[in-house]
Each structure stands twice: as structure tokens, then as C-alpha cells.
């Protein structure tokens, strides 16, 4: 077990298959945020939970090797800056801060409702990355700095 951290092989196999479905579901929630219940926050948490699932099954060392954590770390402020940029674009295009700048489309289409869809995607990315980074840091904390002995 020492060479292979994490849960048993069965759990790993199940996780390997299901994690993509969970991520897909997260994206579905994000992209349909303006039509059905859910949105950027819910979808972002679903994606973060998918990563968390992988981390629980494979152990955090493996995840640290697989995923580029510092890239995920950077993605979070970039998403925030993008949100702010959307707001400033609103001023630049004459509508006022956070005014709508994307074509509204027709009601009940997936690609509709202007800013709302764009902002949902930005928030989804931000929430997923941010929450995963927090959990990852909580997980590695005990090993690097000796939380408990």
C-alpha cells in the first residue's frame, strides 16, 4: 500500500470512469444556468467535487503530479479579472459598469441571455479552481508542516 497511496483498485477504476461524467455534468449545469436551476456556482462546485473525488481515490501526491496546481492557482485570479473586464467593457461600450455587452439571443436558446452565460462560465471556472486549490492545500498541509504528530 505504501507505493500506492489512496483507496483500493476498485475505487480508483470507478473514479476514473465517473469523474468525466461528473465534470460533464458540471459543465452542463454551468451552460444551462440561465435556463434551468443551477449556474456558475453550482457547476463550479460540482467540478471541484470531481477533482476532490480523484484526490480522495488516488491520494494527493498523485494528483499533485497529474494536475498543474500552480496553473489552476493562476486561473482563479484570471477569472476574477475577466469578470471585472466584462464590467469595464460595459463602461467602454457606453452602458455603464457591468452593462450587457454580448448579444442577447432568443429566449430558451442555450447561447442566449448575453452576459449571463459568459459570466456563468467565468464564475464556474473560478469557483472550481479556487475550491479545489483550497482542499488541495488543506490536504498537503499536514505532510509539509507537520500538522499532527
Amino acid at each position: 500500500m505504501k507505493q500506492q497511496p489512496g483507496l483500493t483498485l476498485i475505487a480508483k477504476t470507478v473514479t476514473r470512469i465517473s469523474v468525466w461524467l461528473i465534470v460533464l455534468y458540471g459543465f452542463y449545469i454551468i451552460f444551462h444556468g440561465h435556463l434551468t436551476p443551477g449556474g456558475g456556482f453550482a457547476g463550479g462546485v460540482v467540478i471541484a467535487l470531481a477533482f476532490l473525488n480523484v484526490m480522495l481515490a488516488y491520494g494527493h501526491e498523485t494528483v499533485t503530479r497529474w494536475l498543474n496546481i500552480s496553473f489552476m492557482h493562476d486561473l482563479e485570479p484570471s477569472a476574477g479579472a475577466l469578470f471585472l473586464t466584462m464590467g469595464i467593457l460595459g463602461i467602454a461600450l457606453g452602458g455603464g459598469f457591468l452593462a450587457n455587452v454580448v448579444h442577447r439571443g432568443t429566449l430558451f436558446n442555450v447561447f442566449s441571455s448575453g452576459n449571463i452565460l459568459v459570466l456563468n462560465i467565468i464564475i464556474g471556472v473560478k469557483v472550481a479552481m479556487g475550491l479545489f486549490v483550497v482542499v488541495w492545500s488543506l490536504a498537503i498541509f499536514r505532510f509539509f508542516e507537520g500538522g499532527d504528530k
Binding site: 488543506l138 498541509f141 508542516e145 507537520g146 500538522g147 499532527d148
Partner: peptide
């Protein structure tokens, strides 16, 4: 709060 509590425990 959890982060703070962990550090306090440490």
C-alpha cells in the same frame, strides 16, 4: 475558520 483552527492546533 478551518484554516485558522488547523494552525491553532498545530
Amino acid at each position: 475558520l478551518i484554516a485558522l483552527a488547523i494552525r491553532i492546533f498545530e
